[in-house]
Design a protein around this nucleic acid. Sequence first.
DNA 1: AATAGATGTGAGATCGATCTCACATCGTCT
DNA 2: AGACGATGTGAGATCGATCTCACATCTATT
Lengths: 340, 340
Amino acid sequence: MVRKPATLKDVAALANVSRATAARALNSYGYVGDETAQKVQAAAEQLGYRGNRLAQALRNGQLPIVGCILGDIQNPFFARIAHDIEVLARERGHNLVIGSSEEELAQEISLLASLQSLSIRGFIVAPTSADNNAHLQGLIAENVPLVLIDRVAEGVDCDNVLVDNEGGARKAVEYLIAMGHRHIGLLQDDMRIFTSRERMSGYQAALAAAGIAPDDRMVSVSQSTVEHAVDATIRLFSQKSPPTALFTVDSLMTQGALLAFRSMGISIPHDVSLIGFDDFNLATFTDPQITVVSQPVSEIGRAAARLLFDRLSGKNEPPQKIRFETKLIVRGSVSRRSDG
Amino acid sequence: MVRKPATLKDVAALANVSRATAARALNSYGYVGDETAQKVQAAAEQLGYRGNRLAQALRNGQLPIVGCILGDIQNPFFARIAHDIEVLARERGHNLVIGSSEEELAQEISLLASLQSLSIRGFIVAPTSADNNAHLQGLIAENVPLVLIDRVAEGVDCDNVLVDNEGGARKAVEYLIAMGHRHIGLLQDDMRIFTSRERMSGYQAALAAAGIAPDDRMVSVSQSTVEHAVDATIRLFSQKSPPTALFTVDSLMTQGALLAFRSMGISIPHDVSLIGFDDFNLATFTDPQITVVSQPVSEIGRAAARLLFDRLSGKNEPPQKIRFETKLIVRGSVSRRSDG
DNA sequence: AATAGATGTGAGATCGATCTCACATCGTCT
DNA sequence: AGACGATGTGAGATCGATCTCACATCTATT
């Protein structure tokens, strides 16, 4: 036999009052007699009444849910952020809807549309594309709070939380150059992705500053998964004159590169030096330990959620841009080189 | 200026028809004249009409959202599962709400309640506790589809997807015993958690079969995070007579153990042998590579989502129990021992 | 020609909670 | 005594989409 959840009407009937009074008693607003209030409470308890958030949301226009559209929750970077957002959302009585764009603009757009029609209260998005973002501008136009993380979208004027990608990448590549490397590979994500662009631009800036001509053959593009990165690394290092050092733009790719090197019998740092963007759990357990550019992952989700909830509670200041520093953590995966 | 999303009423007004007709045209049911239908379509387009899923859900009783309550999305195991569920849900036009129980029963209960009041269509839950599950039984009583993953809850008769935890653990420990180990440590999660119980019971069964008396000092309990596992490992191996081998019940704990061993100057497999439950990306990159019990993670989320959507599409068969095998993957983290 | 059926449309109820408004019934103050 | 404010309650509108029902037309069939 199927029990149906109790409605306010049921509670009101049981307590012998009108729906209006029942609502007043349960939400404690307006005038309600003590005795009546208790009768209603008792009735609600007895029926196991838990309002219908759908109806409430329809009435007041907003569903206490935060939408979160990320690249891929399997990336520990995003997983951490999603987790932190969920924790803060929970504290504020909100739930979290998660969608993976899988770095597809079309998917991001359709996800966003489907969430928008849920009258969700606000969004935290890591936009796939830096340029095509009419959908995000649409949010702003409808006054739906939006916080961008990890990436920027042109023409979308809203809060965002970033890290210093370009600086981090430049530091890494400068370090490789200082260690004598001239053929520095770049294992990067799709160029539509903001972080990928910025990190590449840091890479290029460092090369340019050292007077090293850019070389397309030094650059390999891959989706951000371990498996794809393995392939991309193999492609890169199967050339006649492969790089002597590699910079990878995220931790999954770093791990992919490591696995690829192992399978190719390439030893780090003897044959190839490696620096990865974004630290990871086992970076210190590999032998050698992996030198990385670290970003304060644990801050990003929290900062974004805080910005979003500030907006939700009515704060109406101009958009804030939070930018975290990145840090080069030198470990053992880079060796000195003295060729050309 | 704030644009409000267009409603059906707006569309109807613009097309000069009634709401009923507009609805018919947009959802193509009932009789609508060709010309009228086109007028409505045009009006909808012009206004950028996208129904209000809240109102639709209120009307027909269900919101096309799947709720997913896991231990912690930061665990790659759960992240993978969440990802796979999200993909399948998206294909079916559903969104995914994610909540972390953080292995707290109270949080699981309150999350579930808050999601239930959203009239969500179905749930996939990795229950924190094997015993206290009135909340889950409540779902069943209200006929809300529920699929349990990774764990079982007593008295809750519904679809579930598990792996052979006990068998996997036993295989691991039997292997350690066969390699001459008698003092085998267990780094496990909270005993309320089903997988932890089962894996422990596999551990105990293997010891018993070999005539080795269980020893509480060989067991350390930790939350399933890298950090906690580091501490727990250090505690375990700071004893006067520490284990000669360690079995860890999940990959985060395995990684924690690795980091702990490094910090304590304990070398694997020379000083201590190690087997972890659940494979992980870099298990083959460490030196030595880590021997693990692997489970088909990529199957679990998909299987669970499939079961759930079968229910949602009305399938009314008795609950299915899917159980995947686990496999011992021997790599290099176990060495032969010939003491007592 | 009459009637059954097909086709097309609108009015209004419904989902569940909330909120405004109107209407009581008190007590208290001049 | 009259009046005003405080207190308590209910009827009904509202949020947006859907669906039933009733009412038109129009076609085809006997």
